[in-house]
Simulated scan of single mutants.
Amino acid sequence: MAKDSDKQKIVHIHLPKNEKYTTTLTAGKHELIGDEPESVEGGNDKGPDPYDYLLMSLGSCTVMTIKMYVQHKGWPLEDVYMELRHNKRHAEDCDNCEDPKSKIDVIEKEVIVEGELTDKQIQKILEISQKCPVHRTLMQDIKIESSIEHH
């Protein structure tokens, strides 16, 4: 029997011809809106931008993973929050690279926990936060296979 995690995930994305960037994203019965901020010409800021969704995916997976682990252990976690930041930085290991403009994507994850937790439990929560499935996916080499269908 296949586990839910073994099933292929399918989402649908639609950018109607009458919209500049406002996009409908559908995952099963859930519908969301994506857009570019107003600072981007044509953006209407009707929804999060693609990088917001990337950070939200990572953050939601992380807090769910933490909660599952802590509940299993019976630890007194009262609440868990996350703040994530994404930016591009000059690659430190590229100081001698041919392209002086080389930059790498950096995602900063800050986990905020509440509860009567020991220092050892807090350290274990930090360790577990780096083992959520989305975190592990983003840290691996990812193969993206693209195709196009024309109607």
Score class of each variant (00 low, 15 high):
residue 26 T to Y: 02
residue 111 V to P: 05
residue 82 M to N: 11
residue 8 Q to E: 12
residue 67 K to H: 03
residue 98 E to K: 11
residue 67 K to C: 01
residue 91 A to M: 08
residue 69 Y to D: 05
residue 58 L to V: 07
residue 151 H to L: 11
residue 8 Q to H: 04
residue 96 N to V: 01
residue 71 Q to P: 00
residue 85 R to F: 07
residue 141 D to H: 15
residue 5 S to G: 00
residue 88 K to H: 14
residue 21 Y to K: 01
residue 25 L to F: 10
residue 12 H to V: 02
residue 27 A to K: 05
residue 93 D to K: 13
residue 139 M to S: 14
residue 90 H to K: 15
residue 110 E to W: 01
residue 125 I to A: 07
residue 148 I to S: 12
residue 18 N to Y: 02
residue 9 K to V: 09
residue 14 H to F: 02
residue 86 H to F: 13
residue 136 R to D: 10
residue 144 I to D: 00
residue 124 K to S: 09
residue 64 M to A: 13
residue 145 E to Q: 12
residue 117 L to Y: 04
residue 75 W to P: 05
residue 106 V to Q: 14
residue 63 V to M: 04
residue 113 V to S: 01
residue 54 L to I: 10
residue 128 I to T: 03
residue 147 S to N: 09
residue 136 R to Y: 00
residue 59 G to S: 14
residue 58 L to H: 01
residue 93 D to G: 04
residue 135 H to F: 13
residue 30 H to P: 02
residue 87 N to M: 07
residue 25 L to Q: 01
residue 106 V to M: 11
residue 147 S to G: 11
residue 87 N to F: 09
residue 39 S to K: 13
residue 120 K to Y: 01
residue 73 K to L: 08
residue 55 L to W: 08
residue 97 C to M: 05
residue 97 C to W: 02
residue 124 K to C: 01
residue 13 I to E: 09
residue 1 M to A: 12
residue 58 L to I: 11
residue 137 T to Y: 06
residue 131 K to T: 12
residue 11 V to Y: 12
residue 141 D to L: 07
residue 54 L to C: 03
residue 92 E to P: 06
residue 129 S to R: 06
residue 24 T to D: 02
residue 150 H to C: 03
residue 40 V to W: 10
residue 134 V to E: 04
residue 144 I to C: 02
residue 84 L to M: 14
residue 3 K to M: 12
residue 105 D to S: 15
residue 27 A to T: 07
residue 93 D to I: 02
residue 16 P to R: 01
residue 97 C to T: 03
residue 142 I to D: 03
residue 14 H to A: 06
residue 54 L to G: 02
residue 76 P to H: 15
residue 29 K to P: 08
residue 41 E to I: 11
residue 83 E to N: 15
residue 91 A to P: 00
residue 9 K to H: 07
residue 111 V to M: 11
residue 7 K to W: 01
residue 50 P to Q: 12
residue 12 H to F: 04
residue 128 I to Q: 09
residue 141 D to Q: 14
residue 82 M to C: 08
residue 115 G to W: 01
residue 131 K to I: 01
residue 42 G to A: 05
residue 122 I to P: 00
residue 82 M to W: 12
residue 140 Q to V: 00
residue 72 H to L: 06
residue 22 T to L: 03
residue 107 I to D: 06
residue 123 Q to S: 13
residue 122 I to M: 10
residue 32 L to W: 14
residue 52 D to C: 11
residue 122 I to Q: 07
residue 112 I to C: 05
residue 87 N to Q: 14
residue 27 A to N: 10
residue 121 Q to A: 03
residue 85 R to D: 14
residue 94 C to S: 14
residue 64 M to Q: 10
residue 30 H to V: 10
residue 33 I to R: 09
residue 28 G to K: 13
residue 110 E to T: 15
residue 142 I to R: 09
residue 18 N to M: 00
residue 90 H to M: 06
residue 141 D to I: 09
residue 4 D to E: 12
